[in-house]
Write a protein that binds this DNA or RNA. Structure first.
Length: 739
DNA sequence: TTCGAATGTCATATT
DNA sequence: GAAATATGACATTCG
């Protein structure tokens, strides 16, 4: 048994593993996935060996010495024997196998486009899919704030890791994926089969061979653990094809996009139907007037398919807009999370085709037709004086001018002001864009350290130095910091300083380090944790004065062979600041930390304990002054940075607020137009039913309805109504000016 | 060699 | 007024 194990372990099995892993990985995976746990155990080792934590060990086992021989038994031996022959046979086809894999790379995306959507295409679609998501979306929301878009993109990466996480990222993130295993073998394979690979460019080999293999294998085997998880991608596959509509989007997809829109439009149509019912109940005789008015109001730009279709149901405009988004939502279940509700609801481009029709090309005429007072008609039941007459004519220059509730004037006037100013949602979005683009501040938060730099507490790691120093300085006030970090003046860490002092019997340093706060920002190990701060590790200790260097640069006594400690001490010595060198040269009997960080009372007390020369005292005072100033400068810079970051955040918040307000404004305008249209209909209906004493209808050019303060509606001569409306307008102007 | 970032230092103002 | 702190300006180092 043992001999068999040994035989397997050291001979056949390893050879089998090597061969199988060199060129026939997919086939090995096939075996693995075909429910052959023993073989899986033999070749790949226990599943635990493929966990991420073990992966580097796995990487080290490429030579075949870490294959978990404990998992081998006799059963596996025979299985392995059988497989060995197969593997050897397969090995001859390793190159074609690789080519097949390369073919998979190019095929899968097509499959995803075609709608059959093999799960493999998802990962392959990653980058293009990302663009596809934003592409059509941009097509609909082309005036979306770029900030929102960037956020969306970030979100997309978060939402759909399989999409955004491409191969290279996987390699980077995991340090080594399972591909490494294969890659290494492929290196060997290159050695063995160079001729067969000479025809390929290296890049192609990397992509077609490694990349596609990895991708294709990702479909079945986790790149890291080697575990099969076919169920994961189908899940994404179900959502992604919708979330990632490609350019060559099939009509079916577009239909799926439109269908929710149409469905969503049903509700508005129902409303409209109700309204029509109401009209019919009132037996409106001049229905065509209303209809024509509505069409006029909602007629969109020619050629606009959306607006054209929507113009038939003006009152549904808002809901149609919503429906449009719902449609895109339904079809983009994943990327929908990209858009925050507020951003998403803003319909720069999506709504532009829809909203533009809402904005009457002749807004002034609309205002002329519907003065703010017209709205009042919406808020009281059609309780009219009941003087019935003939139908009113279609021309109602300012029919509701007198129906205004003064309380609404101011509020509505704002809306009307917007209309009068020619405001429309498209302009709003345009404004938004301009605002976004000319903010002058780069709000790129993707790599902005703002995310790392929180408030004072979290402190901007962006200014790593500043951050550490801030905490250091803040703690210094209490002089009870537990930090064991670099002193304010020196660059060496406490432990390093201690080593140095121990090694060289430093000039009377008293290591009460824990008492003092120290700055850690020069700690390379910490810097290494902050990739964007890797460059922050300068030793800006200025050139030492020759006198100081004399003492500092003395070679080790006796010229003994330096140990690691001494080398470290030498290195640290070079890292010492100028003031530290000076202090050593002047034989200052305490550390610069103490000099700098002690409260003035303790500092004076410390000075009194020693007999110090004037030069020493002067140096100590300078060290203290410079050290404190250094910390102050660091704090100052940190505050500056924090201020900038806070300003950036504030600007971003303001941008969001502005976008939200613009959206609300657009919504309000839409609602206003809807209400005005309804009021117009009501007005016409009521006016049309009025009859004079002879049973004839009143002429709309001569009479108008006016809403009185007591809630009643009066029929007054139009001239009088216009006069009153003019008077109100004059009244309103000073108010607006005051505002 | 030049440039920009990070940092140290000084002078001065402020607390 | 001293000490601490803040800050602008400049110098230095480093990649």
């Amino acid at each position: 048994m043992l001999s068999l194990k040994k035989y397997l372990t050291e001979g056949l099995l390893q050879f089998t593993i090597l061969l199988s892993l060199i060129g026939v990985r997919v086939d090995v995976d096939t075996y693995l996935t075909s429910q052959l746990p023993p073989l899986r155990e033999i070749i790949l080792g226990p599943s635990s060996a493929y966990t991420q934590t073990q992966f580097h060990n796995l990487r080290n086992t490429l030579d075949g010495y870490g294959i978990h021989p404990k998992s081998i038994d006799l059963d596996n031996y025979f299985t392995a024997r059988r497989l060995l022959s197969q593997v050897r046979a397969l090995d001859r086809f390793q190159v074609p196998t690789t080519e097949v894999n390369a073919w998979l790379v190019h095929r899968d995306p097509e499959g995803s486009v075609s709608g059959s959507q093999p799960s493999s295409g998802l990962a392959l679609e990653s980058s293009s899919g990302l663009q596809d998501v934003t592409g059509p979306d941009n097509g609909v929301r082309e005036s979306e704030p770029e900030q929102g878009l960037s956020e969306d993109l970030e979100d997309l990466g978060a939402v759909a890791p399989p999409v955004s996480g491409d191969l290279t990222k996987e390699d980077i993130d995991l340090g080594a994926g399972r591909e490494v295993f294969d890659y290494s073998h492929r290196q060997k394979e290159q050695d063995v089969d160079k001729e067969s690979r000479d025809g390929r460019g290296e890049q192609e080999d990397t992509w077609a061979g490694e990349g596609s293999d990895a991708l294709a294998r990702d479909l079945l085997v986790d790149g890291e653990t080697g575990e099969c998880f076919p169920a994961q991608f189908p899940v994404d596959a179900a959502s992604l094809p919708e979330a990632v509509p490609s350019e060559g989007e099939p009509p079916a997809l577009q239909n799926s996009l439109l269908s929710p829109l149409l469905t969503g439009a049903e509700s508005p149509f129902d409303l409209e139907q109700q309204w029509q019912d109401l009209m019919s109940i009132m037996e409106m005789q001049a229905m065509e007037v209303n209809t024509s008015g509505g069409e006029t109001l909602y007629s969109g730009p020619p050629g606009d398919a959306l607006s054209t279709s929507y113009s038939l149901a003006p009152s549904t405009a808002i809901n149609q807009n919503v429906s449009l988004h719902q449609a895109s939502l339904g079809s983009c279940s994943q990327d929908f999370s990209l858009f925050s509700p507020e951003v998403e609801s803003l319909p720069p481009a999506a709504s532009s085709p829809v909203l533009l029709p809402l904005v009457p090309s002749n807004s002034t005429s609309l205002n002329a037709t519907f003065s703010p007072g017209g709205l009042a008609g919406l808020f009281f039941p059609p309780q009219l004086n009941g003087t019935a007459n003939d139908t009113a004519g279609p021309e109602l220059p300012d029919p509701l001018g007198g129906l205004l509730d003064e309380a609404m004037l101011d509020e509505i006037s704002l809306m009307d002001l917007a209309i009068e100013e020619g405001f429309n949602p498209a302009q709003a979005s345009r404004l938004e864009e301009e605002f976004d683009s000319d903010s002058g501040l780069s709000l790129d938060s993707s790599h902005s350290p703002s995310s790392l730099s929180g408030s004072e507490g979290s402190s901007s790691s962006a200014s790593s130095a500043s951050s550490a120093s801030s905490s250091a300085s803040s703690a210094s006030s209490s002089t009870s910091s537990s930090f064991s970090e670099e002193g304010a003046v020196g660059y060496s860490s406490d432990s390093e300083t201690l080593d140095l002092e121990e090694a060289e019997g430093a000039v009377g340093y008293q290591p009460e380090y824990s008492k003092f706060c120290r700055m850690s920002y020069q700690d390379p190990s910490q810097l290494s944790c902050l990739p964007y701060l890797e460059h922050v590790g300068h030793n800006h200790t200025y050139n030492l004065a020759p006198s100081a260097l004399d003492a500092a640069d003395l070679p080790p006594a006796g010229g003994l062979k330096r140990g690691g400690k001494e080398k470290q001490a030498d290195f640290l010595e070079k890292q010492m600041s100028r003031d530290e060198h000076r202090a050593r040269a002047m034989k200052i009997p305490f550390t610069n930390d103490k000099i700098i960080n002690l409260p003035v009372e303790e500092f004076n007390e410390l000075l009194s304990k020693y007999q110090l020369s004037e030069a020493q005292l002067g140096l100590i005072r300078d060290i203290r002054r410079r050290g404190k100033n250094k910390m102050a400068a660091q704090n100052c810079r940190r505050r500056k940075l924090d201020t900038i970051l806070n300003l950036e955040r504030a600007v971003e918040d303001l941008r969001r607020d502005k976008a939200r307000l613009l959206r609300e404004k657009a919504d309000s305008l839409r609602s206003l137009r809807q209400m005005k249209q309804k009021v117009q209909s009501l007005y016409q209906e009521v006016f049309g039913r009025l009859r004079d004493e002879n049973g004839r209808p009143y002429s709309p050019s001569q009479y108008a309805l006016q809403y009185a303060g007591d809630g009643s509606v009066l029929l007054i001569p139009r001239a009088m109504a216009e006069q009153q409306a003019h008077a109100r307008r004059q009244e309103r102007k000073p108010k607006e000016r005051r505002k």
